[in-house]
Design a protein around this nucleic acid. Structure first.
Length: 596
RNA sequence: GGUCUCGUAGCUCAGCUGGAUAGAGCAACUGCCUUCUAAGCAGUAGGUCUUUGGUUCGAAUCCAAACGGGAUCACCA
């Protein structure tokens, strides 16, 4: 970056000196040179032809000659049409490399003083996590890490949806058919056990609907009138009224689910600084609604329901409180927003929630603004696309949902199988092998889900996503393991590759230079990923870095190099690549192995 | 129907604030392991960047429209 700035500065000077044209250096943009031409940076001269009344080649030629003479970084140049390609001196690349290697906090931005809250995961407590949740969890965790690397003060929170009709469905089915089954007695993980009863409810409920329809009732009506649905609603009312027995069962079943979630979270390596529970926040929302009525930014309809008119924001009227005074989804979000802000006065509050809720978040933000809440401005909906299967949309009702725990286990099995096939498991203790499989499995899965732009809907193909070759997590992990082997060997040989140990290196191979270019880019990449809330930017970078290194690894020998300085440089270069692979993968929540 | 969003190789995806002959991976084909881990490297083949118009020196990228997917517009969450 500073290299680009320096060159831009020189170009600005050149334009002034040669053509008497004043252009600020910040206005001069350089782009990476396409690989079929010599050079590292390219300056496009087309935009200046009119003002200067000269041809693009002519301008490029004149600038190139000036830069070669006056810019200390520029080694040579070539002009192709309106493109001035600049080659940078090898000494300059080496200097940059030494500099970044000595910077212990390389890639970590200065503290920004900004507080950012990141809410993610936010599960319902009536069933286990599925593939869609995995994208959410990986995204949320990764974005939080990326924001930290950008110098922000980050708090990760999980808002658990622990109340509502869906939980009552599981509870009801359990009451009827549970026979006192527990996770201990059945050996079923708590969230799966509760999910089992949710499915049982749904099955029986469907049967009732079919029956009613067979009797001639309209399907929509049957859905509302089915006895089981009425019972579930009754149970919800009892819960809201604090009925002891209902609350007791609710607590018991939720505790099973939490134990299960806890296990899954630990297994997939995500964590939270704080949990919020909707049962603990939904009442607060009603206070905000009351506040809005007093401020006269909300209004009450004849039947008693409360609304906000967001027409001036290009949105509709929105219900905030039902006629019977009970809260709806957005009511509790109004309360939770305030609670969050009181706990952690944020500059920004990120909600990692699927794009089906885009409208909801527009409404939430607009409504809080109407209430005059200053923190409304900081609300940012990190909206991500749904995960599709080759068979189409995931539908829990049709049983096409991919269970998170099962998927992770399948990935681990595949990792084991692949590793054994390749015969790469010699010298591992069983525990180490197990750890490796886990690292590879999650690396493959996380990378697969994070390499795609979050905003885009994506396809999860079970066959491809468990691939360990090509543009995958394990490919990058493998590159790290290779370097680790080199570093072990260097260490055995007593080589310490410090900046001083290769000061005499004069020429660089092309492959070496390409690796340095990648290394130099890293801070910019972290910044961009932060600005865009996009782990995919980091993922693409890690892949490019690993690819550049593997090219180098293939073409250039390290330990057969007779020039000690050159050898030391290559070891240092390798160490730095390993470090940035570890860092960047860490930003994705992916661990890297020492051996594989 | 209104609003929002997406459309790039057979498949899955990159392509930054407009720049050169649009790039990866998978799948197909060809080479490279007595030399630091072949989960690798090098190469061949594969494209009307959905279409049409506009902006300009220049458009996959910006604007408009059309076509085709998806989401949403509940006293559901």
């Amino acid at each position: 970056m500073q290299l680009q700035n320096a060159i831009s500065q020189s170009i600005s000077q050149a334009l002034q000196t040669l053509f008497n044209l004043s252009v600020d250096a910040s206005q001069i943009s350089l782009q990476p040179t396409r690989k079929e031409f010599a050079g590292s940076f390219t300056f496009v001269t087309f935009p200046y032809t009119k003002q200067l009344g000269k041809g693009p080649e002519q301008i490029g030629q004149a600038l190139g000659e000036y830069l070669k003479e006056h810019a200390p970084e520029v080694k040579d140049f070539n002009v192709v049409k309106g493109f001035l390609n600049l080659e940078v001196k090898e000494a300059e690349w080496l200097r940059l490399f030494k500099e970044l290697m000595q910077n212990r906090a390389y890639g970590q931005a200065e503290p920004s003083g900004r507080n950012i809250m990141v809410e993610y995961s936010s599960p319902n407590t009536n069933k286990p996590l599925h593939l869609g949740h995995l994208r959410n969890n990986f995204l949320g965790y990764s974005v939080a890490e990326i924001l930290k690397a950008n110098g922000h003060n980050v708090m990760k929170v999980n808002l658990v949806n622990d109340r509502g009709i869906h939980i009552c469905k599981s509870m009801l089915a359990y009451q009827k058919q549970g026979n006192g089954e527990t996770p201990e007695s059945s050996g079923i993980k708590g969230d799966h056990l509760v999910g089992k009863y949710y499915v049982l409810f749904d099955k029986a409920y469907k049967e009732q609907i079919d029956e009613l329809v067979a009797q001639g009732m309209d399907k929509e009506e049957a859905k509302k009138k089915a006895p089981l649905m009425l019972e579930a609603q009754e149970m919800l009312k009892k819960w809201e009224a604090g009925d002891e027995q209902t609350v007791e069962l609710w607590k018991l079943m939720n505790s099973w689910v939490y134990a299960g979630f806890d296990q899954t979270y630990r297994n997939i390596g995500v964590d939270f600084d704080k949990f919020y529970y909707e049962s603990g926040t939904y009442m607060l929302g009603k206070e905000r609604v009351e506040e809005g009525l007093q401020k006269e930014v909300f209004f009450r309809k004849e039947n008693g329901s409360v609304w906000v008119d967001l027409a001036d924001e290009g949105l509709d009227e929105k219900l905030l409180l039902r006629a019977d005074g009970t809260s709806v989804y957005i009511t509790q979000d109004l309360g939770t927003a305030e609670l969050k802000y009181n706990d952690f006065p944020y500059d920004e509050s990120v909600y990692v929630v699927a794009d089906e809720q885009n409208y909801h978040f527009q409404v939430l933000k607009a409504t809080l603004k109407k209430l005059g809440k200053s923190y409304a401005e900081g609300i940012y909906h990190l909206s991500y696309g749904m995960v599709d299967l080759p068979s189409g949309k995931m539908k829990s009702r049709e049983g096409t949902v991919v269970d998170a725990d099962e998927l992770v286990q399948e990935m681990i099995d595949t990792a084991r199988q692949q590793t054994e096939e390749l015969g790469k498991i010699e010298g591992f203790t069983p525990e180490q092998a197990q750890e490796l499989y886990h690292t590879l499995a999650l690396g493959a899965l996380k990378y697969f889900l994070l390499k795609v732009d979050p905003k885009k809907r994506m396809l999860f193909n079970p066959q491809e996503s468990i691939d360990f070759r090509g543009n995958t997590g394990p490919f990058i992990q493998y590159t790290h393991a290779r370097i680790a082997a080199i570093l072990r060997k260097a260490s055995e040989m007593g080589i310490v590759a410090e900046a001083t140990s290769f000061e005499g290196v004069a020429n660089l191979h092309e492959a070496e230079q390409e690796v340095i270019v990648q290394l130099v880019n890293y801070p910019e990449v972290v910044k961009e990923a932060g600005n865009l809330y996009a782990p995919s930017v980091i993922g693409n970078y890690a892949y490019e870095l690993a690819k550049a290194y593997n090219r180098f690894y293939q073409e250039i020998s390290i330990f057969n190099e007779t020039d000690e300085q050159a050898r030391n440089f290559r070891i240092a270069l390798s160490a730095m690549v390993a470090r940035l692979i570890r860092e960047s993968m860490g930003l994705l929540g992916i661990n890297v192995p020492e051996r594989m």
